[in-house]
Amino acid sequence: MTDHASPQSIRTEAIESLLIEKDLLTADAVDAVITTYTERVGPMNGAKLVARAWTDPDFKARLLTDATSVVEEYQFEGGQVEKLIVRECTAFDHHVVVCTLCSCYPWAVLGLPPAWYKDPAYRSRIVSEPRQVLAEMGLNLSESTRINVWDSSAEIRYLVLPKRPKGSEALSESELAEMVTRDAMIGVAQVDLP
């Protein structure tokens, strides 16, 4: 990159200046949209829930029995969750989420869905051969772990509560939240210590 502005950058600036002159737009409104997408929405909302569940047994119990009202209390911006169900991964049970019909996704807690989530191959194969698909995505589960596949719908969205990584006992809730990835909350990855 040189220090000259790219043609796209200049054109973008030209469009913005014209729209502002015509009173069709304000720079503040553009800033607000960008902030919403890059900071306030996104997997951090879900990661906060997971980290708190790992450190607060009462919160975890509530999250597993009535995630919808827990999320309502948080008043996350940028999307609504009709009904949210949280499934907890254990040594014996793994959970993974899909939407076989379209791409229903818990936006409020996970932000924008990844491109592969809508891929027809993922949507069909995660149901018919989940162990194989997870292995291809880099998650190798032992044969003794049961894999449960949850099909999201317009009415019900799922969030996976991943296993807390071994050796993370000394970490604070916010340090834990930093480690929780979107993929782990869909159930196609585990949370590992960095």
């Binding site: 790219s6 950058s9 913005e16 553009v30 960008i34 932000g111």
Partner: peptide, 16 residues
């Protein structure tokens, strides 16, 4: 889960 903006103009055009 987050959009990758490789340059500031990309986030501006998206925001607009």
């Amino acid at each position: 889960g987050e959009i990758i903006f490789e340059a500031p103009w990309q986030s501006r055009v998206f925001g607009m």
